[in-house]
Computed example of a mutant assay.
Amino acid sequence: MNFVEFINTLSKRLAENKLPGHEEIMKRMSPYRLRVKVEPNGSTRRSAVLMMFYPKGEEIFLPLILRPQYDGVHGGQMAFPGGRVEANDRDIQATALREAQEEIGIKATDVKVVRNLTELFIPPSNMFCQPVVGYMPYRPDFYPDEREVADIFEVSISELLDPSIVQIRTVETRGNTLETPCFVIQDQIVWGATALMIAELIEILKD
């Protein structure tokens, strides 16, 4: 289907259907995540990421970013563009749009928001993260912030819906080595919270 048809179908599904959520997906996640005992508390912060579709040639894409290597929870990991809520943000969707503009250089005012997906609590960073689905009617020029983004990967819908990207891989995080379900996209391992968000999105996109 073309881009307009895709967006119309996606918007209709998100408007009419209950979100799949993460409960069933979580049951298939690695024991490592289930061992993390952090619960939301007074120090828990909020953040948002943008899952932004756009046309490119005959395909439909959305961007994933690779975080630079740094001494932190999510250093060197694949993610959607996004970040923490700031005091001046109008709402959680504004956070996602602002952060995407800052990190990958898109024009936030050209993004049409469709709907929020299921908010996810991320124990290692003690943070709630709100995925926000949106789209642009054109392929944007990307201008990554080198402090926040090591690389940008343009991922097609056909790639996301390819069952072969679902794999079990060994990853290292904060001195721990673990085997975890993940997506292998363009030779990059996408796991953890980002994988859960993608898994919910796939459930919505599947026929």
Rank of each mutant, 00 (worst) to 15 (best):
N8Q: 12
L10R: 08
L10A: 04
S11G: 11
K12T: 09
K12P: 04
R13P: 10
L14K: 12
E16K: 14
K18H: 14
L19C: 06
L19N: 12
P20C: 09
G21T: 06
G21E: 06
E24F: 01
R28Q: 14
R28M: 10
M29F: 11
S30F: 09
R33Y: 14
R33Q: 12
L34R: 06
R35S: 07
V36K: 15
V38H: 13
E39L: 15
E39T: 14
P40G: 04
P40N: 08
G42N: 13
R45S: 14
R45M: 14
S47N: 04
S47V: 03
V49P: 04
V49W: 00
L50W: 09
Y54T: 01
K56G: 04
K56A: 00
E58V: 06
I60S: 02
I60Q: 01
I60E: 01
I60L: 01
F61D: 00
F61A: 00
P63K: 02
P63I: 00
L64Y: 03
L64D: 03
R67V: 02
P68C: 04
D71M: 10
G75P: 11
G76H: 11
Q77C: 05
F80Y: 12
P81E: 04
G83A: 04
R84C: 08
R84M: 12
V85D: 03
E86N: 12
A87P: 08
A87M: 11
D89T: 11
D89L: 12
I92Y: 05
Q93L: 04
A94N: 15
A94I: 06
A94D: 15
T95G: 09
A100I: 01
Q101R: 09
E102A: 08
E102N: 11
I104G: 02
K107M: 02
T109D: 15
T109W: 10
T109G: 10
D110Q: 11
V111M: 04
K112V: 14
V114Q: 07
V114L: 15
V114P: 13
E119F: 03
L120K: 07
I122S: 10
S125E: 13
N126Q: 13
Q130G: 13
P131K: 12
V133Q: 03
M136P: 14
R139P: 06
D141L: 05
D141Q: 14
F142K: 13
P144V: 08
P144L: 08
